[in-house]
Each structure stands twice: as C-alpha cells, then as structure tokens.
C-alpha cells in the first residue's frame, strides 16, 4: 500500500469540509473522487498532498505522514495538480513544465539530458510541443490546463493527484488526458487519484471510485457496484439510468434532462 488516508478530517474555521475520510491506494491504481460541488474533493486532495493541516486523522506514504516528509522529497513521490492554478504572466509553457523538474534538480544541479528528455516527453504527451514557447497568458483555458498537467507529469512521481484535469478540455483532449492517465498507471505503475465531474469518464478509467457528499464518503469501491446503489441519483439529485455498454465495462449513466420531458410534452401537444 502506497498512500493511505485514515480518518482524515479537515475543518475550515470550524466548518467541517472533510469528515473521517479513508482511502488506500495501491501502486498503479487509478482512483476517482466524485461528488457534488463543495463535497470535499479538492480538500481531500490537498490534505493528501500535505498542503492542509488536517484537524484529525492523517495521510501517510509508505507509513510516513505526508506533513513529516520534507517538501522536495515529497515532491519526488507525489505530484499535485490544483483545480485552478495561476502562473506568472510572462512564463512560457516550457518554463512551467521545467518547474516540474525542480524536485529532481533542486537549487543547484544543472538539468541533465534525462531531465530535458522528460520535459520533452511531458510536453508531447499533452500535445504541447508546438506551444512550448508561448507565454501562458496567451493560451486558451484548455491549453493552459494541459500545460499544468504537463508540469505535473514532468515531476515523474509515483503518485499523481489531479484535481479536475479535464474540466476545461474539449472532448478530444478529455479523452486524450483520460487515456494518458490510464497509460501512466498501466505502463509506468503510477498511482493516480483524480477528482472528476464526468461520471462516465470516471467509471470507465478508474479501478476504484469514492463518492463524497457534504464531506462524507458515501461510497468507496468498484465502479460497477456503484451503479447498483442508487447513490448517484440521491447525492446529485438527478434522475437517470445506468445503461450497460459492453460486457466487461462499467455501465454508462444516462441522465434524464428536465427539459427533455418539457420538450417532449410540447411536441406531443
């Protein structure tokens, strides 16, 4: 077991944002975190990245609490992509991705051929080679998001925490990033925890899924089992059905849109 959270509790000025959160992550496992806005997904990721001081419980890597690991050593083991990071105005894509190597080169060591190759690989994997020299401020929201993903994977950590990596991407790049996540886990043995809003993408790529509601974990398990609980409909306050799409794949959630009934009603009249 690589990363483990036990009874992790986070409060913001008295308000509980995450309650007794448990999670275990095996090498090469992809874990999806889903839940409504404000349910505590980002909070959980930040606590796992050692960026928040939990008021109870702890997150450990190989048995050592994350906040006891020196920052640079932690960064070699764990990379974190914030939900809405901002970068300095003038910074270019390549310069941002280079920062991902800081954990390896530190203050003084010069960038080796290996470092440069990794940076090239990270840019290529996110489709950014052509944009490498562009300042971030001149990029579209999706391009910028890919640049941040690129910086996170350039860190070459065993654990990757991604907070909504696909939220600004067009459908083509969404699939590409989901595929990248899958390949990282299967080919490089990277363990990934990913907060994500697209339920079907989450179910299709992850090995295990956690569903949060108001800071509490209401489901933790195999994505196929989630379909049978009916929790999606209650937690997200929607109506829909799980449709099987392939024998061995998790089913797709087909959400019922309110205006569809309305439109059908209008048309029927």
């Amino acid at each position: 077991m690589l990363l483990a959270c036990s009874k992790l509790t986070v409060t913001y000025g008295g308000r509980i944002a995450l309650k007794s959160f448990d999670l275990t992550l095996q090498p090469g496992e992809v874990r999806a975190l889903i839940g409504p806005n404000g349910s505590g997904k980002s909070t959980a990721l930040q606590a796992m990245a050692g960026l928040l001081r939990p008021s109870g419980g702890r997150a450990v890597i190989d048995g050592v609490a994350v906040d006891a690991i020196p920052r640079r050593r932690l960064a070699r083991q764990l990379a974190y992509l914030p939900q809405q990071p901002t970068a300095p105005d003038e910074m270019t894509v390549a310069q941002l991705v280079r920062q991902g190597r800081f954990a390896h080169v530190g203050l003084l060591r010069s960038y080796s051929a290996d470092d440069e190759a990794t940076i090239g690989w990270a840019l290529e994997s996110t489709g950014l080679l052509a944009l490498a020299d562009r300042p971030l401020r001149e990029l579209s929201g999706g391009e910028r998001q890919r640049a941040w993903i690129s910086a996170a994977i350039a860190q070459e950590a065993r654990i990757l925490l991604l907070d909504e990596p696909t939220s600004f991407l067009d459908i083509g790049y969404q699939v590409e990033i989901i595929d990248l996540v899958y390949r990282l886990s299967r080919e490089r043995g990277v363990s990934i925890v990913m907060a994500i809003h697209d339920l079907n993408q989450a179910m299709s790529v992850c090995d295990r899924i956690s569903l949060l509601a108001k800071g509490e974990t209401v489901f933790d398990g195999d994505p196929k089992d989630l379909a049978e609980t009916g929790l999606i409909e209650t937690v997200f306050r929607v109506r829909g059905t799980f449709v099987p799409i392939a024998p061995n794949a998790p089913p797709h959630f087909d959400v019922e849109l309110a205006h569809r009934q309305m439109r059908d009603g209008v048309l029927a009249r």
Binding site: A49, P82, P85, P88, Q99, F102
Partner: peptide
C-alpha cells in the same frame, strides 16, 4: 512567483 500551495507541491519549502 507561484502561489504557496503550487510552489510547495513543486517541492519548495516555501
């Protein structure tokens, strides 16, 4: 130049 959480997660003792 980055916000503290970002600098930290890149490995800097901020």
């Amino acid at each position: 130049q980055f916000e503290a959480p970002v600098a930290r997660s890149f490995g800097l003792p901020y």
